[in-house]
Simulated assay, not measured.
Amino acid sequence: MDNADHVVAFDQRIGPTERSDIRALLQDSDRAASSIHDRETFWDAWRLYYNNCLERHGCSWLASVTTQPLFISKERDLDSLELNIKGYSEPKALFDLAQRVMGGMGIREFVASWLAGDGTGEARLLSWVIVPCQINDQGGINVTTFGIQVKGRPLTTQQKPELVMRFSGGIYGFDPVAYAPHREAMRARLKGIALRKLGCVEL
């Protein structure tokens, strides 16, 4: 992933202007949230502020996605991931998207590699934000934020090694018309400042 910890994936039907606008929106939301909260320490507060920034700049909330912490001691434990989805009519499609996100991020390989090493050392894959952007059935753009935290609990005399994964996010409709009044000010804010790298994956 070339050290990016904020990753976007675009539907091939999304045009270059919308892609550029969404990238700017994601980076500005990251910048704003990170100026208030340390993402590594205050994950939940950071995520709420980040989502609020999306809603104030052209995105409308459609659904939320959460999970209970998933304790992983073997790779197939990832198959027991359960999403708590509120407000979305196609939970199976969203679950499939979450599985593709984990595949695109190499999470299964990360888990297998760490567990194969008997859980020694520190295992961290913290605070990833994965944003698949897709064209919906009505021709609009859905922006889905998946926040993923994975942290290893090393082997001790009392326990076997395991990882804990938390998965949370939301689905938003991106409206280019609602975003347009913010475009110039947002790009001006992003000029000349160090930004967290925004990567790109295929899902």
Results as ranks from 00 to 15, higher is better:
5 D>C: 03
7 V>G: 09
8 V>P: 10
14 I>V: 15
15 G>M: 02
15 G>Q: 05
18 E>Q: 14
23 R>D: 13
26 L>Y: 03
27 Q>L: 15
28 D>L: 15
31 R>L: 13
32 A>I: 10
35 S>Q: 14
36 I>G: 00
37 H>C: 01
39 R>K: 09
41 T>S: 14
42 F>T: 09
51 N>R: 02
51 N>V: 05
53 C>M: 06
53 C>R: 05
54 L>T: 11
54 L>R: 05
55 E>A: 11
60 S>I: 00
62 L>S: 03
63 A>Y: 05
65 V>E: 03
68 Q>I: 10
70 L>G: 09
73 S>Y: 12
75 E>C: 00
75 E>V: 14
75 E>K: 10
79 D>F: 08
79 D>Y: 04
80 S>G: 00
84 N>F: 06
84 N>Y: 06
87 G>V: 00
88 Y>D: 04
89 S>N: 09
89 S>P: 02
89 S>F: 01
90 E>S: 09
92 K>C: 00
97 L>M: 14
99 Q>C: 07
101 V>H: 05
101 V>W: 09
101 V>R: 03
103 G>V: 07
103 G>Q: 14
104 G>H: 10
104 G>W: 06
107 I>F: 11
109 E>M: 06
111 V>C: 09
113 S>M: 08
114 W>E: 05
114 W>N: 04
114 W>L: 02
115 L>A: 08
117 G>Y: 00
118 D>W: 11
119 G>P: 06
119 G>K: 04
122 E>H: 13
128 W>P: 00
129 V>F: 01
132 P>C: 05
133 C>G: 06
133 C>H: 07
135 I>R: 13
135 I>D: 01
140 G>E: 11
140 G>R: 13
141 I>R: 10
141 I>Q: 05
144 T>R: 04
147 G>M: 15
151 K>R: 12
158 Q>W: 08
162 E>N: 14
164 V>D: 02
167 F>M: 06
174 F>I: 03
174 F>Y: 15
176 P>C: 08
177 V>P: 00
178 A>Y: 02
181 P>L: 10
181 P>T: 09
183 R>D: 10
185 A>G: 06
189 R>I: 03
190 L>A: 02
190 L>S: 01
191 K>S: 14
193 I>L: 04
194 A>Y: 04
196 R>K: 08
198 L>P: 00
